[in-house]
């Protein structure tokens, strides 16, 4: 049986529902030596800022049970260098390009969206959820009003599809998701990392120089799946689900909960071929279950007791 793993999000056709998550895959060059990038549905590139950013001091990483904390702090070459040095190279591959943007201010988001509107990318992922920077970013993502403000501003600044990446560090993620939808987002992606801390008991200081960091990896997966389920009930726009995906089975949980596509992040560090293996596994699942396309799986969850 021929199965079609392709998905459409805001009119952008991805060959399969697996996207490399922002911050874990750079601009694709390094992992391009390990996998055929043509076999990914897409890549969300390293979070971009208007000006180049050095990021936080090290240590920036700490391993935790079934996960890790990071506090990179958006080290990146800036949006202009991305457009000039990275897009032409990445365009040689068929995967779709998502530009992940993080601003200190609404004006930053607008300026980056305007600049990227002219660039050869497929989508803009609005990062209002990075927990590792002092200004902007997560402070917008923490409230529905902040999410709406940034989403509206970016929406006006570009005709490219806009995906808003949500933080789990809120009391009710469906309200920030609804704010993104109301602001004109074409899709939402969730979840970004959960803020955490690890303490070295010998020095009695946090292990990360930045004190806190974002928790990712399998440890956060059940939280992420639950949040995708909640957001699916609350909004009509497509959802890109992520959080600790290591296998096709993990990815399928997100899809059944309501995701149209998924992102694989931290697990790439463990297995550089993770994205490809997840995509291949999803295809196998469709074949084994006699399904021709993936769309019917999205949100097909049946709750117990209903």
């Amino acid at each position: 049986m021929h199965v079609n793993t392709g998905v459409s999000i805001a009119g952008v056709r991805l060959a399969n529902p697996v996207i490399a998550a922002s911050g874990t895959y750079g601009f694709g060059r390094e992992y391009g030596e390990y996998v055929d990038l043509n076999k990914l549905g897409g890549i969300s590139v390293k979070g971009l800022t208007l000006e180049p950013r050095a990021g936080n001091r090290t240590p920036r990483i700490a391993e935790t049970p079934a996960g890790m904390l990071n506090s990179v702090g958006l080290q990146n070459p800036g949006v202009e260098a991305f457009i000039r040095d990275e897009i032409p190279w990445l365009r040689k591959y068929s995967l779709k390009i998502m530009a992940n943007i993080a601003g200190n201010s609404v004006a930053d988001y607008i300026q980056m969206a305007e600049r990227l509107d002219e660039a050869d990318i497929d989508m803009i992922e609005v990062n209002v959820s990075c927990p590792n920077v002092r200004q902007g970013c997560i402070s917008f993502g923490s409230t529905p009003a902040g999410v709406a403000e940034v989403t509206l501003a970016v929406r006006k600044a570009t005709k490219k599809p806009v995906v808003v990446k949500l933080t789990p560090n809120v009391s009710d993620i469906s309200s920030t998701a609804m704010a993104a939808e109301a602001g004109g987002a074409d899709a939402v992606s969730l979840i970004n990392t959960i803020t955490g801390m690890v303490i070295d008991v010998n020095t009695r200081r946090p292990l990360l120089y930045n004190n806190t960091g974002g928790l990712s990896g399998p440890a956060i997966r059940p939280v992420a799946v639950r949040m995708v389920h909640e957001v699916y009930k609350a909004v009509g726009i497509p959802i890109i689900g992520m959080g600790g995906i290591t296998s096709a089975e993990d990815a399928l949980q997100f899809i059944i909960a309501g995701a149209s596509a998924v992102m694989v992040g931290t697990w790439n560090f463990n297995n550089p071929r993770a994205c490809i293996e997840v995509a291949d596994g999803i295809e196998c699942y469709l074949k084994e279950n006699g399904m021709q396309c993936i769309g019917r799986l999205t949100g097909c969850l049946e709750l117990n007791g209903e």
């Binding site: 874990t24 895959y25 390094e30 090290t58 240590p59 990071n70 990179v72 080290q75 560090f269």
Partner: peptide, 14 residues
């Protein structure tokens, strides 16, 4: 330095 990916993608070991 403590590392993540080991191949230059994640920028953890700066």
């Amino acid at each position: 330095e403590r590392m993540g990916c080991g191949i230059g993608a994640c920028l953890v070991c700066s």
